[in-house]
Design a protein around this nucleic acid. Structure first.
Lengths: 202, 202, 202, 202
DNA sequence: TATGAATGAGTATTCATTCAT
DNA sequence: AATGAATGAATACTCATTCAT
């Protein structure tokens, strides 16, 4: 019988993850030291290691949680949308307003860093590949749906276009996180949306 | 053995840069330790520091050299091309065949890592921003030229589309360096080319 | 083992300082490497850096502590002494018996080394200058007091004579730390005392 | 048969020593790197090692040369002086005006540093002890001469007072090289002269 | 469970000395 | 003799992880 409730543990865990996200986003995964998370979270080093095995695990859990949240949010909204067109529009809308949510920017920055980092470590590769596929499938499903409903050109390869979509997203976030110009970022997304929809729509 | 020729020094310098590129590309800039470069280059630690002031300088010189090479190559080819259309086509062609040149992949991977890394250090920001602007201007010039010749839509904002172009490029490289599927990468570039040209052309 | 008492930390700190003094005294500040202190103290390198920021800080803290101890001791004794004469006599007495306390010899040796070293670094200069002034003022006060009570010649410049006093002290310690002849050292102090008192007294 | 004249070699040697003195005086013996001497002397590193075995030897030769120069100078002047009183006065005069000769200040600074440094290395100890004794003897001879002529008190111990003299000198130089106040330094020497002569004279 | 002190392998950089030319 | 490129041991400091309390 545990001394503390499962809920208590869950909350503590989340608290650590939130601090970690903040630190990773601000300084980068590699540059963040555990003491940064200790300071930000006000949780002792030992306690952090009670909840997570390593710095790497913290990152991975963070990634997992954020990914889940993303899809939960999207699924919730998509439940009320019937056409592929609307779903794509919704997706773009989400990115366009995303800059306002600093958390997401940080997540993505960290995610890109880890992508580079992870591409060199077999154990991370697998986890990241799974995550990547989830994102790919998300767009693939919308595209296929749109092709069935006649909204989207039949000759489009769903896999290919989905990969391109996420590549554009990541490239844009990468540049934006460096450039830091919100207005330009928004305009870029408008253009990307137009270009992308022009290309895929019937 | 002193009083060596300028050529000897230049070659040694390049030798170090090549090893550094290899190491940075394989393990990442941050994860590469000087001893990796020592081992790969067979040049002693002290000698490396005779040629470069720091690990950071090695990186920066690498970036500079690669950037210069890129523009020299492009300028050389562009000299024989008159239309914006041809120049863009040439650019896409370059990226499509790039996978075959492992060096470039590594440079870009390292470059993306440094982008993330550099966005948090003021001195690096400046250098990276300059480099970024050089790339931006390259496309801007082609677009403006195309608008004047009537090849490209007047309503396109050259700055905006140039930024998008490089964001797509970087996003694609980022993903590809992780995924490692050459064939898919080529196909993606074909699609991107089509999508992009559809959008900008008259 | 955390959540240790303030006393525990204070003791550990002192332990490190004692080892550092020993090492600095034996090999010199510059020649002492952190591993020497590690070996002597049996405290890990990391732990040492938990207590002190740098080798320089260890030195400075050592200096501060020793300086404080010196003045505390002197003030305590002086509280029972009313005349300038007695105070000076007490001061000389302290130096004469000092050879028996190896610690002080080492401190002074290290202090002299740092003096040379520090005269070339602005940040150290300030700290050392403050410490120097404290010593200067100590004698100045005694001299002025003696002049008021008629014990000491009015024409003596307190600042000047105080500087000379400490110069003699340091010169003597410097030579003695090299020569290592205790008996001679004591005799030298007797002579210095006589010469000095002859000169300043009414 | 040598390729270059002995004179050429001697000049080159001196050139190196002069640069070394300048560097050691400015940065300290330990802090000076061979490249500082290379830069200052415009002589290549290899050439320096043709003339001297090590950095330490350069220092030792420097010390030797300076010591010789000092005694040559003093002996030359003393040749024209008959009384101990005059010889002492001449000695003080030399120190009082010495501040104007930056070279000597530097030599002494270096010499003090080496004294500390040397007290921990047996091979240096011997050399420094010899040098020290030469200085001690110099004053001893004057004192003995003065005692014989009745100028100086019989009860003065020549060895003891000679040691004290040099201790005062070194202490004063040490402080002065840190404080850098020429005027004060001169005043201090006046006072020391008065105090010292009062004490030793009949 | 929580704490935070302790550990020590790891890292960039320096510099006296060597030696091929 | 002169050159200066090459060497690599040395060194201050960091930080993920452990573990005694």
């Amino acid at each position: 019988m545990p001394k503390v409730s499962a809920q208590y543990k869950e909350e503590k865990r989340n608290h650590i993850l939130e601090s970690a996200l903040k630190c990773f986003g601000e300084k980068g995964y590699q540059a963040t030291i555990i003491d940064d998370i200790v300071k930000d979270s006000n949780i002792s080093k030992g306690a952090i290691y009670n909840y997570f095995e390593s710095k790497e695990e913290i990152y991975l859990q963070l990634l997992k949680k954020r990914t889940n949240t993303f899809f939960e949010e999207m699924d919730e909204v998509n439940a009320h949308l019937s056409s592929a067109k609307e779903k794509l529009a919704n997706l773009f809308k989400r990115f366009k307003k995303q800059e306002l949510k600093e958390d997401d920017q940080q997540t993505m920055r960290v995610y890109i860093e880890f992508w580079l980092f992870g591409s060199r470590q077999e154990d991370l590769r697998k986890i990241l590949a799974e995550r990547y596929n989830r994102f790919i499938d998300y767009i693939v499903n919308i595209i296929v749906e749109g092709q069935q409903s006649g909204e989207i050109k039949k000759e489009i390869d769903p896999q290919n276009i989905s990969r391109i979509f996420w590549a554009i997203r990541d490239g844009n976030v990468l540049h934006y996180s460096f450039l830091g110009e919100e207005e330009q970022y928004r305009i870029a997304w408008d253009t990307i949306e137009e270009m992308f929809l022009n290309y895929v729509q019937q």
